[in-house]
Structures are given as C-alpha cells and as structure tokens.
Design a protein around this nucleic acid. Structure first.
Lengths: 170, 170
DNA sequence: CAGCATACGTCAGCGTTGTTGACATTCCAA
DNA sequence: TTGGAATGTCAACAACGCTGACGTATGCTG
C-alpha cells in the first residue's frame, strides 16, 4: 500500500475517517472478536453432544419462552430442517418442551425444562463473563458506540428482530 | 423476569450499567450483526465453489502477502488439514501462489495472483460497503467505542494478531 | 363443505468446514 | 548426523447449513 493520502475507495465521501484501512480494521476486529465471543460456550459444548446451533436455540427459547417454531426459524435464519434436527435432540434429551398451541393448534410453543434452563445458564454465564469484562474494560461510552455500530450493521429484518427482543424485557 | 432493581449476576460490581439484560443485548447484537457482516460475501461466494473459509484465507493473504502457512494457521485458528483443503483448491484454481521460502526452504510463502486479487477485491468491496454504511450511520465516536469493545472481547492471542496486522500498514 | 394455505415434522441427499489420527517428506540446526 | 520443525496428504468423522419432496394436522375462506 502506497504512502501519502489515505485511500478511500468510495470517492466523494466527505467523512475522512472512513478510509479503506479503517474499514478493514473494523472487518478484522469483527472476525477476531466473534471468535472470542463464541469461544467459551463452544468449549463447554465440545464435551457434550451439542454444538453452537443448540446454544442458539436454547438461548432464544429462554429469551422468549413459548415462542413458536416459525418464530424461532425467523430469528435464527436457518431452514426448518436444520432447526428441526437441533430441536429434536433437545426435546428427546428433555431440555426443551414442545406444547401444542391453544389458539392455533398447528403451532408448537417451545419452553425450556429445568434441565434446559440449567444448560442455558451455564452457557450464558460463560458468554456473559467475557462480555462483562469487555464492557467493563471499555467503559459505558464505548459500549454505547459498540451497540450503535452493531445495530447499523444488521440486515433490516434482523434489526427488527433485535428490537423486538429488546422490547420484550426492557 | 421480575421487575424492580436491575439484575446483576456478578454481585459486588459497582458498575450499574452492566446488568444481565445489558449483557444479553450485547450478546444478541453480536449474533445479529455478525450475520449481516458475513451476508454479502456469502451471497457472492454461494455461486462459486467457495465458502467463507476461502474468503478468510484470501483476505489474510492479501493483507499480509508472503505470509507462511503456519502464520496463516495461527491467524485463522484452524487445523492445518482444514486450511490445506481450502488452500489447495485456491492454488489449483490459480488464485493463490505458493512459493518456497528463501531463508527457510521448508516454509511456503503465500501470494495472491491477479485473479486472486480480483476475487479479494470483489468480496471485500461488498463487506466494506456494509461496514462503511454502518460506520457512517453510527458516527466516529461510536466507531471508536465499537473498536474498543471488540478488541476487549478478543482472546489474548487474537488481540496480538490483530495488533500486528494493524501495525502492518498504519 | 370443499379447497387452499399454513405450521410442522421428516426422509434423503449433499456441500462446506471444522475435527483427530497417522504418516511421508523436506530441511534447518544442534 | 540426527532430532524436530514445517509442510503436505490420506482417511474418517461430526456439526450444521442447504434443497427437494412428502405427509399430516389444522385453520381459513369462499
């Protein structure tokens, strides 16, 4: 890369801080940070017969108890076959309970059993511990910026899902 | 979740902004944002016989031309067998060139061919476009916070690798 | 009621990408 | 010269995405 003026592939932009180099650093930061983000739960899951997909399912069922399969499908952004494989093992192992809907009997509402809650707790404790350290080290202002950028990086649909989940409890 | 005082599973912490709810929102933000982060290159790669692993390899070879296989292994954090499979197809297809080291002839130094550079450009253009939008929408202060938190979230080794790459050009 | 749509489950097959384990080759360095 | 490091490769496997097809139960609508 040549020295001199910062390179910006998006000419006409008057925001000088958006050099290609800055953007690439952001990209690499996302890559390395996501590795750290998943490392601790992955380590825990490695021992069991579960993987990251199980973690995600358990997380969001815990987050929105009674959610339907279809809803979960939209949040996770995978096919029903892919989710079903995960869900089936979780139900067989007694971590998740599937209840027929009252209003619409076609729907299945998903809940964590006590055992499922225990696993969720274990996994999210590990993940939260890292997040807490990072947030603490970075400070409240940085955390606000972090959240702002991440939200701007999401697809529109995901931003909606995120906001909806956020509104669930806040 | 009960109402009242914010829950904080890490008692004794005097930083009130680190409630479990805040942490969980951070976790979910990472999940959804990472999906967006990879969506565009994934779409491009879906057509070809390549995947995300090829993207990563091409990215870091472009970032540090002449890097050795071992070095790349450490950055990517996968096994040599896994990387080799990807690297082999890239070399066969003429996107990557592998040169025997001069100082140490056991080492292979990796370079992108023109064709490889073209692919890297295409992929990183797409990814940068999203990053640029997010950065622009969020503003410089938020971007600084974003970077700070991400760096704090990395494993120590990854932070080192990240810093080293950053120092490469900055 | 008939017909269509929706929600869910499942079977079969496939691709990418990660893993372990084992082994060969090349080559630097003590 | 010999031990070990760096690399490449084969085989087998698991997790987790995908498509396509099909079946069942249920709900809605004309």
């Amino acid at each position: 890369m040549a020295e001199g003026r910062p390179v910006n592939s998006y000419s006409g932009e008057n925001l000088l801080f958006l050099t290609d180099e800055q953007l690439r650093q952001g990209i690499e930061a996302m890559f390395f940070a996501y590795r750290g983000f998943t490392a601790d739960p992955d380590r825990i899951l490695a021992g069991m017969a579960y993987g990251r997909a199980h973690h995600r399912a358990v997380h969001f069922i815990n987050r929105a108890p009674g959610t339907t399969v279809n809803n979960l499908l939209n949040i996770l952004g995978v096919t029903k076959q892919s989710l079903n494989r995960v869900l089936r093992t979780l139900i067989e192992d007694g971590l998740v309970e599937s209840k027929v809907g009252k209003a619409d009997r076609r729907e299945r509402h998903l809940f964590l059993t006590d055992e499922g809650k225990a696993l969720e707790q274990t996994l999210s404790d590990a993940q939260r511990a890292r997040m807490r350290m990072a947030f603490r080290d970075a400070g409240p202002d940085a955390v606000a910026g972090f959240r702002t950028v991440l939200e701007a990086m999401m697809d529109k649909d995901m931003r909606r899902a995120f906001a909806q989940l956020r509104g669930n409890t806040t």
